[in-house]
Design a protein around this nucleic acid. Structure first.
Lengths: 293, 293
DNA sequence: CCCGGGAGG
DNA sequence: CCCTCCCGG
């Protein structure tokens, strides 16, 4: 099929991310930016389908374009691969990169340096994964608020159900056990089917919420994997699933993180007649509000 | 491969069943038989793999040989097909035949006339079977004891799990709801995996027992489908499953049916280097004992 | 990374 | 009538 080399001029990639100012990056840092002035926290979560080697250059360019457009405070990526990571690191110099592995495909947390202060990170193993999956955790500070940021790519496929749910239980355990002064945000590709959460796990733990549900289950941001629109995988049947999810565990006291909006991104086809990924990305905004206490 | 016609002389088939006395069947009826004098109830259950068209003549001959050797009071067959049924009916004139269908493959109950008095029978539909399966039920009298005899071939394959368990629930319901003065015996190819009963159904209902378990789970009669020995299907992996099971629901009062033994049959290869079936048959003996009340 | 069916082990 | 892999839909 139409495989493409990643090795091409980085000019169009830089331009995709930095826009016309890419020859003078200081211009960007000087120009006033809405998001660096406000107290909204923006989080992007996206499985960028690094395992698909078709149209890689165009897809990375499209990805950089959206990363540059939204410049989320926290970016949670799944299915990063080394060459793509290298490109992003070279170009997104305003972000700090954390990665869950060095090889294969893996997750990454990107922290916008001017907004998010990195404190520490760790990698939690899933002892029985057959797909090399794990949980990447970062403790950060955002405008003085302590945050615990997590991402993962839970075991794939319907047949991975049992393992996936074990992984999810582990994620929830770590969310619950994070320092209680931290707001905890998990975002990633859970590969969950609704019935798995409802019937196998009897719903979410008391302290953890699904951000999409908190926002009233908006239909337009429900399905993050949707073959009725996305034909990257050439699947003739229309199948729509909410694989990608954001979970929130509030801090015990202090300012409370409240989800404000969730939109899907990556919905537009590239010129090469391909989508950036077979998943849509999630773009989420949160605000801090005073605790009721 | 080595398909064989069923249409051959019935001479060797008759001889297989009746032995050297087949030219004078009255001889058989005259000679004293242990089983017709005692109060043991013998039950055979066997999926005879009618869907396999290889070596049919030799396999039916081998089957008749064992049917003639044991002359069980009740024979429960699965995967009967019309030509095989016709052969058995022609030869086993000492049995009454009940069949669950006229076409395709189906189950049958064979009642040894001199020992078992037929009263009535019925066929229970499985409304959502995709394989034409059903439950065949016969009410009979054995030495004055009322019995309800059932057989079925539950939905096959791992992928049939959901449907299979629904069918099993239906079987158990009918067993529980049989007249309480009847002892109820189900025997057949359940296609069950142990975990389905334990984890999906939380074990057997209170009133119903698995005869193999009642006998102390003898290892030598555990696996009725065993590719480590049986190569009819040419499966290179060794897989052993307890597909074929006997369930017992005791009568509420009166003489109680107690399982005495369970052995597997059909373990010997035919001269054609093939087994009678890909399943072993089950041969079970029961005794009646006075109720404790 | 959906689903089902078919081939090979 | 096991399982896994692969392919097509």
């Amino acid at each position: 099929s139409k495989s493409t080399q990643t090795k091409q001029s980085s000019f169009p990639l830089k331009q995709a991310y930095w826009g016309n100012s890419f020859t003078d990056q200081s211009a960007d840092q000087q120009k006033p930016q809405l998001s660096s002035r406000n107290s909204y926290l923006t989080v992007m979560a996206w499985n960028i389908d690094g395992l698909d080697s078709d149209n890689v250059f165009d897809r990375v360019k499209g990805l950089l374009s959206l990363l540059g457009k939204y410049r989320a405070d926290v970016v949670l990526l799944q299915e990063l691969i080394p060459p793509t990571l290298k490109v992003l690191q070279n170009i997104m110099t305003d972000y700090q990169f954390l990665q869950a592995s060095e090889e294969g495909y893996f997750t990454g947390i990107l922290l916008r340096k001017e907004r998010v202060q990195f404190l520490q990170s760790s990698i939690v193993k899933y002892p029985t994964t057959e797909m090399g999956r794990n949980l990447l955790v970062a403790n950060v500070s955002f405008l003085g608020h302590p945050l615990c940021i997590m991402t993962s790519h839970l075991e794939s496929c319907k047949t991975g159900s049992q393992e996936r749910l074990n992984q999810l239980r582990r994620v929830w355990k770590w969310m619950k056990e994070a320092p209680e002064d931290h707001s905890v945000i998990f975002g990633g590709d859970t590969n969950l089917r609704d019935w798995e959460v409802v019937k196998k796990l009897n719903g979410l733990p008391d302290s953890i919420s699904d951000v999409w549900e908190m926002l009233g289950k908006p239909e337009e941001s429900r399905y993050t994997w949707d073959t009725s629109i996305n034909d990257n995988n050439e699947i003739p049947n229309s199948i729509r699933l909410r694989f990608d999810r954001i979970f929130l565990r509030p801090a015990a006291e202090g300012a409370q993180l409240r989800p404000e909006s969730m939109t899907l991104i990556g919905l537009e086809k590239l010129k090469c007649d391909y989508f950036i990924s077979d998943h849509w990305g999630i773009l989420c905004t949160f605000t801090f509000e005073a605790s009721e206490e």
